[in-house]
Design a protein around this nucleic acid. Structure first.
Length: 286
DNA sequence: AAGCGCAACAACCGCCGCTTC
DNA sequence: AGAAGCGGCGGTTGTTGCGCT
């Protein structure tokens, strides 16, 4: 199954590494128009790439908010522990690592963490205090061997912190075993997010194309819309089923039913966190 | 300085699931 | 109901950079 747009221009589709010029074109286009239908992006942006390639490039490299720094010990522990629970569900794991992409997490695992297995086995308590099996017994197996027992989710959060998430209706286990596997979060379309950050210091986005895409939250202030969303989310404990679709500033705002983030997950977020997590082309409120 | 090997990262490929018609 | 389009995901491969000899 192919993309009509791309099939039309298949012969012209470039492959391989992206040039700075291509990056700039893609970035300019998406920042201005949003991506919309990915298959039409290359055509509209004047790129000889297919839509998938553009999407990947945006998600993994160009989008604002990406961390380009080395993984911290906390992030490392998060990866190890979630990998224990979920296996090679990189995108799911990446959801809990703000500013990290699934590709980045995957690469980090394959090139670095895998090799640290002996260390993990030697000091399992460092990463997996309550686990009785090797945290890496499922390597190479996309299905996690070990299903978490109740309340034994142990990352950098403590049992007491888990208990503090009692306002969340689902238990940690249900979060994991649930097909959704994570609490539903408000969804903001890219265009909305973009307009929300119009108040922010956009110099932090590397709009000059210097190659460093670093978001510096300390330099930015959320717009009123963003703060409003934050307030809504902060007060929506039990406001299940809230659905608000409206037209705002020419863009459609969509909110999914909101549930509070479990305390133990929020503890993973650093103080410098913006309050939003990029999930590919969407932002999720934490 | 050049060649080689390895590690890290970037990107592609193919499959799958969801949505739309 | 089924086919087609599309986005997303995970595995794999290609490329680059760096250290060592």
């Amino acid at each position: 199954m192919g993309c009509k747009m791309c099939e039309k221009t298949k012969a012209k589709c470039r492959k391989g590494l992206w040039s700075p010029n291509e990056d700039q074109k893609l970035k300019d286009y998406i920042l201005k128009h949003g991506h919309g239908c990915w298959s039409s992006v290359p055509l509209k942006a004047g790129l000889q790439r297919n839509g998938k390639s553009c999407r990947l490039r945006w998600i993994n490299y160009l989008r604002p908010g990406l961390k380009r720094s080395a993984f911290t010990a906390e992030e490392e522990a998060t990866i190890v522990n979630f990998h224990t629970m979920w296996g090679n569900k990189w995108s799911r794991i990446a959801m809990y690592l703000p500013g990290r992409t699934d590709n980045e997490v995957k690469n980090y695992w394959n090139t670095y963490l895998k090799k640290k297995l002996p260390e993990f086995d030697e000091y399992p308590s460092k990463y997996q205090p309550s686990s009785t099996s090797s945290p890496h017994s499922d390597i190479g197996n996309s299905k996690p061997k070990q299903q978490p027992e109740e309340n034994n989710i142990q990352i950098s959060f403590s049992e007491s912190s888990i208990s503090q998430e009692s306002s969340y209706s689902a238990s940690p286990q249900s979060i994991i075993n649930n097909s959704n596997d994570r609490p539903p979060l408000p969804k903001v379309l890219f265009a909305d997010w973009l307009s929300m950050f119009s108040y922010s210091d956009q110099s932090s986005w590397d709009l000059d194309g210097s190659g460093t895409t670093t978001y510096r939250p300390e330099l930015s202030f959320p717009s009123p819309e963003l703060r409003q969303l934050e307030m809504v989310s902060a007060n929506t404990t039990g406001v299940h089923g809230m659905e608000d679709s409206s037209i705002y500033g020419g863009y459609q705002l969509q909110f999914e039913p909101v549930e509070p983030i479990p305390y133990y997950l929020s503890s993973l977020i650093s103080e410098a966190d913006t309050g939003f997590e990029l999930n590919h082309d969407l932002f999720f409120y934490r």
